[in-house]
Amino acid sequence: MRFKIYRYDPDKDAKPYMQDYDVELQPSDRMLLDALIRIKAIDDSLSLRRSCREGVCGSDAMNINGKNGLACITRLADLKQPVELRPLPGLPVIRDLIVDMTQFFKQYHSVKPYLVNNEPPPERERLQSPAEREELDGLYECILCACCSTACPSFWWNPDKFVGPAGLLQAYRFLADSRDEATSERLDNLEDPYRLFRCHSIMNCVDVCPKGLNPTRAIGKIKDLMVKRAV
């Protein structure tokens, strides 16, 4: 199978280039990550992040034939050759397929991604009905792979000011939690021309999310809450 892979090692390369690889695959090689591991056995200098190899840790996000996805759950059989692999767009490249995710996590941290409830905790669990719990479905499953935010033009232009779909999905995860008491502070934190409102609902995030989540819908719900509190 043929691959064209983005290469850049600041230690020795003046600028990035695309390298061709032709690898013989085994019948057990099902996913793109399997092929990348074969390539790495031949050329140990190819650098990428990977860990769980089942789509739950979010390490191996990359741009695959023009679309962001996770290498470990992208089927080789579905890929057009040569398979063109690039680092996630919009973030600084550290080396090869490895990007600097500082800005992405900074935005995630900026939404205060933790439960706020200043009541003294009860002896037992805080009660939550199954219906209230269901509000968190489609939100808590985010793996922070950054496929969505790095597919979003608003995030490309303003990664320092726009929270981005991943961060906003998590902002809504806590707004939606019946146990959380910080709704108004959370909305204040997003009431800004950039942080929330740079989302123009083009839905690139929904299109690429490897977990099938829908940040655009969550962003819409945050906007609804803003409107509700304004009236």
Partner: peptide, 19 residues
Amino acid sequence: VIELEHFGMPFDRNADGTV
């Protein structure tokens, strides 16, 4: 486990709201 629930863990729930 109760502490983890207080930290915000999204446990599945019973009809009575318990974990």
